[in-house]
Deep mutational scan, measured.
Amino acid sequence: MATGGRRGAAAAPLLVAVAALLLGAAGHLYPGEVCPGMDIRNNLTRLHELENCSVIEGHLQILLMFKTRPEDFRDLSFPKLIMITDYLLLFRVYGLESLKDLFPNLTVIRGSRLFFNYALVIFEMVHLKELGLYNLMNITRGSVRIEKNNELCYLATIDWSRILDSVEDNYIVLNKDDNEECGDICPGTAKGKTNCPATVINGQFVERCWTHSHCQKVCPTICKSHGCTAEGLCCHSECLGNCSQPDDPTKCVACRNFYLDGRCVETCPPPYYHFQDWRCVNFSFCQDLHHKCKNSRRQGCHQYVIHNNKCIPECPSGYTMNSSNLLCTPCLGPCPKVCHLLEGEKTIDSVTSAQELRGCTVINGSLIINIRGGNNLAAELEANLGLIEEISGYLKIRRSYALVSLSFFRKLRLIRGETLEIGNYSFYALDNQNLRQLWDWSKHNLTITQGKLFFHYNPKLCLSEIHKMEEVSGTKGRQERNDIALKTNGDQASCENELLKFSYIRTSFDKI
């Protein structure tokens, strides 16, 4: 039985969820670079991206490699990797027998973001014989899940209580170790020597080791999670996991709180800001991140802002960003909400898709409305799209047979046209069989910064309504002859009103 693990408890099935942008060198404390989270699957090609990484700022997932063999891993080693800020997950990587050479110096898994409450997941690794993470000293947050690894031993010899604050939620089941077939031998045991430290858990006094050649490092209890030197002297209180010299914040392997210019500090002093819960960055760093993602459509890219001495992905609820200094300031009234469309555009074809934009005031991208039916549609669209004030790209209304009016965009005031449909149009209306009105132009103002209007096959939309939009939106004169079809717009509506004058002759039985 794995020490510190839980057996036999019912657990939810383990679901495996399925960018080499360097964020800056980590400095003297770390020998390499800070790398983003990685999802490495199918083959070993991307694994080489770990070569210079000291910190993975995010998670590391290595999974679904069915053609790899043990010899493929023999020359692979990433000794610079010290810390993973989120979680480490391995799933069905064939041929991998140990992690001792792959990650010989991995010391800390912070667990800032977890995989279903777990910071370390080893699942269905069919050839893994031992973990071998002999320098792993601290899992700051989260638990361990090690399950269905039929060859995995050296679990009962690990004292997880020396690595985690609590072992109650560890789930370590259905491994070879369960069948008591392992016969784990710690260093020196074969020669009758006791080389590794022994600890007591559940009444068992057991030597602690990761492999037959690597003991588990056990520091004096007084050192807590700070770690200790090879001689057993406690590291500085700002260290986490390990250090090369005692009581020196510049000799830590990793930091308990924050890293700044080669030393570990309790908090980031001005003019620095907390970033990702582990390091200090200056304003320029946060500003660069903001600008890199301002026009990016890459998933996970955030326009970072500053709030409460932190550089964070977005302002919290009730705050909006001051564009001059990136500071989050309290909103006066309802907060603006910028919604970034991942692929640059979004099609609204149902109430469900409209709900995804609920509360958005600025759309960074283009909207395509293609709704053919739905219950209580006008009210639903207004509830979900009615706060949109600005669209950076274009607005396209296409084959939306259920629409009679666009009044559900009740606050839309600006279409920038930074991206144009077919390279020309910022407003595009095609084949809307029941569209009769755009907006009530006596109450609604709309500016279209650039781009043209396109109207074709809107049989109940009168040309007068379209011409009014040209005047109000500032697009009059931009359109070419064929942009607004004269014969297919309003051709099934009563669009022309003329005053009919009647004269009559009164007659009676005795007068003409």
Score class of each variant (00 low, 15 high):
residue 280 C to W: 00
residue 281 V to I: 07
residue 225 S to W: 14
residue 86 D to N: 11
residue 285 F to M: 10
residue 150 N to K: 07
residue 173 V to E: 11
residue 66 F to T: 00
residue 298 R to Q: 03
residue 117 N to F: 03
residue 64 L to R: 01
residue 240 L to K: 11
residue 237 S to M: 06
residue 90 L to H: 00
residue 260 L to C: 01
residue 55 V to M: 01
residue 54 S to K: 06
residue 137 M to Q: 12
residue 252 C to L: 00
residue 143 S to P: 05
residue 125 M to Y: 00
residue 199 T to L: 09
residue 94 Y to F: 03
residue 155 L to F: 02
residue 88 L to P: 01
residue 253 V to G: 11
residue 90 L to T: 05
residue 298 R to E: 03
residue 77 S to M: 12
residue 204 Q to T: 01
residue 165 D to S: 14
residue 107 T to D: 02
residue 325 N to K: 07
residue 297 R to C: 15
residue 224 K to R: 05
residue 167 V to M: 00
residue 295 N to F: 13
residue 30 Y to N: 00
residue 81 L to P: 00
residue 210 W to R: 02
residue 108 V to S: 05
residue 85 T to C: 08
residue 72 D to G: 04
residue 32 G to L: 05
residue 229 T to K: 04
residue 316 P to Q: 04
residue 81 L to R: 00
residue 283 F to D: 14
residue 68 T to G: 14
residue 184 D to T: 05
residue 310 K to G: 15
residue 60 L to T: 04
residue 44 L to R: 12
residue 335 C to L: 02
residue 309 N to K: 09
residue 257 N to R: 10
residue 329 T to P: 05
residue 186 C to N: 00
residue 146 I to R: 02
residue 216 Q to L: 05
residue 143 S to F: 11
residue 335 C to N: 03
residue 261 D to Y: 15
residue 160 W to L: 05
residue 49 E to Q: 08
residue 332 L to S: 13
residue 173 V to Y: 04
residue 98 S to W: 00
residue 130 E to T: 09
residue 59 H to V: 05
residue 245 Q to T: 08
residue 149 N to H: 00
residue 77 S to V: 07
residue 307 H to W: 10
residue 110 R to S: 13
residue 165 D to K: 15
residue 306 I to S: 06
residue 60 L to W: 00
residue 198 A to S: 06
residue 320 T to Y: 07
residue 55 V to W: 08
residue 307 H to I: 07
residue 230 A to W: 13
residue 295 N to R: 12
residue 319 Y to L: 08
residue 212 H to P: 13
residue 288 D to E: 12
residue 147 E to V: 02
residue 38 M to R: 13
residue 264 C to Q: 03
residue 259 Y to R: 14
residue 143 S to C: 08
residue 245 Q to M: 07
residue 87 Y to G: 00
residue 96 L to S: 14
residue 58 G to E: 01
residue 224 K to A: 10
residue 316 P to G: 07
residue 138 N to G: 05
residue 252 C to D: 00
residue 152 L to I: 06
residue 92 R to A: 02
residue 225 S to F: 13
residue 275 F to K: 01
residue 228 C to I: 02
residue 168 E to W: 11
residue 153 C to K: 09
residue 120 L to H: 01
residue 306 I to N: 14
residue 117 N to R: 01
residue 275 F to S: 03
residue 223 C to Q: 02
residue 107 T to R: 00
residue 53 C to E: 03
residue 67 K to G: 01
residue 251 K to N: 11
residue 100 K to V: 09
residue 99 L to G: 01
residue 159 D to G: 06
residue 241 G to K: 04
residue 141 R to Y: 00
residue 69 R to P: 02
residue 194 T to A: 13
residue 194 T to V: 13
residue 182 C to M: 03
residue 299 Q to A: 07
residue 232 G to H: 09
residue 48 H to Q: 15
residue 261 D to W: 03
residue 277 D to R: 06
residue 127 H to N: 04
residue 198 A to K: 15
residue 116 F to T: 01
residue 225 S to L: 05
residue 133 L to P: 00
residue 332 L to A: 14
residue 96 L to W: 00
residue 97 E to S: 08
residue 124 E to Y: 00
residue 277 D to G: 10
residue 233 L to P: 04
residue 237 S to T: 08
residue 269 P to A: 08
residue 299 Q to T: 07
residue 331 C to S: 04
residue 241 G to W: 01
residue 222 I to W: 10
residue 299 Q to R: 15
residue 137 M to D: 00
residue 150 N to Q: 09
residue 323 S to K: 05
residue 156 A to I: 10
residue 288 D to Y: 05
residue 240 L to M: 07
residue 321 M to V: 09
residue 109 I to M: 05
residue 129 K to D: 02
residue 326 L to S: 07
residue 66 F to I: 00
residue 198 A to E: 15
residue 262 G to V: 03
residue 50 L to K: 00
residue 164 L to S: 06
residue 69 R to W: 02
residue 234 C to S: 03
residue 98 S to C: 05
residue 180 E to N: 13
residue 151 E to S: 07
residue 66 F to Y: 00
residue 314 E to A: 08
residue 73 F to V: 02
residue 251 K to Y: 09
residue 162 R to S: 08
residue 175 N to A: 04
residue 99 L to A: 04
residue 189 T to V: 10
residue 180 E to G: 13
residue 295 N to H: 07
residue 154 Y to A: 03
residue 171 Y to P: 00
residue 204 Q to M: 14
residue 183 G to D: 12
residue 262 G to L: 05
residue 59 H to P: 04
residue 155 L to P: 02
residue 52 N to T: 15
residue 31 P to L: 12
residue 159 D to A: 07
residue 249 P to Y: 04
residue 320 T to A: 12
residue 213 S to C: 14
residue 125 M to Q: 04
residue 162 R to C: 11
residue 264 C to E: 00
residue 146 I to C: 03
residue 248 D to K: 04
residue 77 S to D: 03
residue 31 P to G: 14
residue 29 L to G: 11
residue 57 E to D: 15
residue 237 S to A: 12
residue 160 W to F: 07
residue 277 D to F: 03
residue 251 K to S: 07
residue 74 R to D: 09
residue 92 R to F: 01
residue 130 E to N: 13
residue 199 T to F: 08
residue 284 S to N: 10
residue 335 C to P: 02
residue 50 L to W: 02
